[in-house]
């Protein structure tokens, strides 16, 4: 009897289906433990007034509170503004740099790739310290010395509502392009030379080649960077937390920072979980819309 069972199991494993399950098991277990379980648990917590020694069920109260909280909507607005100002501009900057790098020899390309990717491997906290130094509010600050060169007065970069958001946006514009540049370079190398040769025979200019060959071929890459960039931007937390703390007067409070404050400053884990689920829903809707309207003629 035992022998028959072992034989059966062996047969099952020897079939493609059995091995298939074994291969995906690791990823499936990791996904269940570190993605599915936290999401389900977040949903459960969002329906509770969470207390370490015993939570109480409050239904949709946390969602209701969030939707009627003016600070939550201000944080959503700030996040949308930050996203609109950074994501498209960053994609354009990365594209531009990739176009400038591609004519170089492979070795030079590698040097540029490494240089641009360097901030991605550096600690975010260390980068924030450097930027805090750049945005020093006194005359000795680098940013203030630059604006003084153009005859402008001293700016309280991170301490004024007029410039705090711009400072965070500027920080994003001038850093963290490494991943997008590498992805664009890989996509550019994938375009067959025959297209450029044909265009040259037809007398196409550099800009025409860029517009009629490069841009259409890079559309899937651009969509990918747009979707992932938007997801990352909506979850932005670190820079606002380290650079401005959300101030002044909540001018740079993003949803991610608000969720963090609710969870770890006020210990309102239920409200934080509810807001994180709302944020996830917003991201899902926007990502779906992007695929729906921009991904029509894209095949993967």
């Amino acid at each position: 009897m035992n022998q028959m069972l072992t034989r059966k199991r062996r047969l099952k494993l020897e079939s493609d289906t059995g091995w298939g399950y074994v291969f995906i098991a690791v990823a499936l277990i990791a996904f269940s433990l570190f993605t599915a379980y936290p999401v389900i648990n977040a949903f459960v917590i969002s329906l509770q007034e969470y207390r370490p020694l015993g939570s109480t069920y409050v239904g949709l109260e946390n969602f209701k509170e969030s939707f009627t909280d003016t600070l939550f909507w201000k944080a959503v607005k700030n996040t949308v503004v930050y996203t609109l100002l950074t994501v498209p501009a960053n994609i354009f900057i990365s594209f531009l740099i990739a176009i400038l790098i591609i004519p170089f020899k492979k070795r030079t390309q590698t040097i540029f790739k490494a240089v641009y990717y360097l901030p991605a491997v550096a600690s975010g906290v260390a980068l924030a310290v450097v930027w805090l130094w750049i945005f020093d509010p006194l005359k000795s600050g680098i940013a203030n010395q630059i604006v003084a060169f153009f005859g402008m007065s001293n700016q309280n970069w991170l301490g004024s509502s007029a410039t705090a958001m711009f400072s965070l946006v500027l920080m994003s514009w001038l850093s963290s392009h490494g991943t997008a540049i590498i992805i664009y370079l890989a996509a550019l190398l994938g375009i067959d030379n025959s297209y450029y040769e044909a265009a040259e025979i037809d007398g196409a200019t550099f800009l025409q080649k860029l517009w009629y060959i490069v841009v259409p071929f890079l559309k899937p890459t651009t969509l990918f960077l747009l979707v992932t960039g938007l997801i990352g931007s909506f979850q932005v937390f670190q820079n606002a937390y380290l650079m401005t703390g959300g101030g002044p007067d909540h001018a740079t409070t993003m949803v991610g920072l608000l969720i963090f404050n609710n969870a770890f400053t006020y210990f309102e884990f239920g409200k934080a979980a509810a807001q994180s689920l709302v944020l996830a829903a917003i991201i899902a809707v926007i990502s779906f819309a992007q695929f729906k309207f921009m991904g029509k003629d894209i095949e993967y």
């Binding site: 301490g159 509502s161 002044p248 007067d249 909540h250 404050n261 400053t265 006020y266």
Partner: peptide, 19 residues
Amino acid sequence: IKIETEVIVPKLQALLADE
């Protein structure tokens, strides 16, 4: 603490910045 974090500190920053 909630009033302090959500209102007092942000408003103080705005007051200091003359906003």
